[in-house]
Amino acid sequence: MQAAVQQLFKWMPFLFGIGFIAPLIAQTMAYWDIAAPFGMSRIAFGLLIGAPWGLYAVLRGRWV
């Protein structure tokens, strides 16, 4: 149980990228009426940014 929780927290930045940053990007774009590039949906564009960014934070230990 403890190991599972530790793994969950280790991967939390990645989950945060998918669970929060992606929809935040999509909804912010919708608020400002900005279309996603290449015919993508806004949420797909958000996931394209949020997931790799979260993964980067997991691997590097920093968001920037």
Partner: peptide, 18 residues
């Protein structure tokens, strides 16, 4: 905290949660 943020974000309230 994470559960609230994720739930709000995926139900259309990401800006409010932020």
């Amino acid at each position: 905290f994470m559960a609230v943020l994720f739930t709000m974000a995926w139900t259309g309230y990401a800006i409010e949660a932020a």
